[in-house]
Amino acid sequence: MPKRQIYLTGFMGTGKSTILNCLHQLCGLQKIEMDEQIVQEQGMSIPDIFAQKGEETFRNLETELVKRISHMDNIVVSCGGGTVMRQCNVEEMKKNGTIVLLTATPQTVYERVKGSHNRPLLEKNMNPQYIEQLMEARRPKYEAAADIIVKTDGRTAKEICQEIKERLEINDNTK
């Protein structure tokens, strides 16, 4: 594998956590779930960070974590949905990594996240129309950052991971 990290990006509910775990198991890569890492380090949930410290503080925590990750080898990272909104994060990720954009339709995202209360940006707007508006607002940055784009609608995690492995020419480490 020519680059040291794989960054899974995309809107919330596109399958980043699921694909992170699948690539970890299939390829033997270390894994980091950025949101989980921030929650662990801050000792509070993401909604609490947003409420008590603000979105800007959360985004700064993401940037600091991206900088630390960029020095690691053979790792797959599930980025928070907004990580690529900051160009400095994208530049850091591209230094040693490949950015994989996972996509899904607004309806698929809605079906996947409708029972979740851990998504502050959707909490008061949990509907396909709002999801579509937010996705469209972010799409140019997601697509500009992406090295490859993988659709997740109607596909199993294994099928998606297989496509990523083939496109990034990753060898199995779990023989």
Rank of each mutant, 00 (worst) to 15 (best):
I164V: 04
C161V: 06
E136G: 10
I160A: 06
L122T: 06
T152K: 00
E163F: 04
C161P: 03
P140I: 09
Q129I: 14
L134F: 10
L168E: 00
T152P: 00
Q133I: 09
L168M: 01
R155E: 13
E132H: 13
I131A: 05
Q129K: 14
P140R: 15
D153C: 08
P128W: 12
R167P: 04
E136Y: 12
T156N: 09
E166N: 14
E143D: 05
A157S: 11
R139C: 03
T156K: 13
E163T: 06
K158C: 06
I148E: 01
T156I: 08
T152M: 02
P140K: 12
A146I: 07
R167G: 06
P128K: 10
A144N: 14
I148N: 02
R155N: 08
M126H: 06
Q162E: 15
P128H: 10
K124E: 11
C161N: 01
I149D: 01
M135N: 05
E143H: 07
P140Y: 12
N125I: 05
I149T: 12
L134H: 08
I149P: 03
G154R: 09
T156V: 11
Y142P: 00
K158E: 11
T156R: 13
E132M: 05
G154L: 10
R139H: 08
R167K: 15
T152H: 01
K141Q: 14
A146R: 03
K151C: 10
Q162W: 08
K158P: 00
L168F: 07
A144K: 15
P128R: 08
A137I: 07
E132T: 02
A157T: 03
E166P: 00
A146V: 02
E123N: 13
R155I: 07
K158W: 09
Q162T: 15
K165P: 00
T152A: 02
Q133H: 10
K158A: 04
E143P: 00
A146L: 07
P128M: 12
E136F: 07
K158D: 06
I164S: 00
Q133G: 08
Q133A: 12
R167S: 02
A146E: 02
P128V: 07
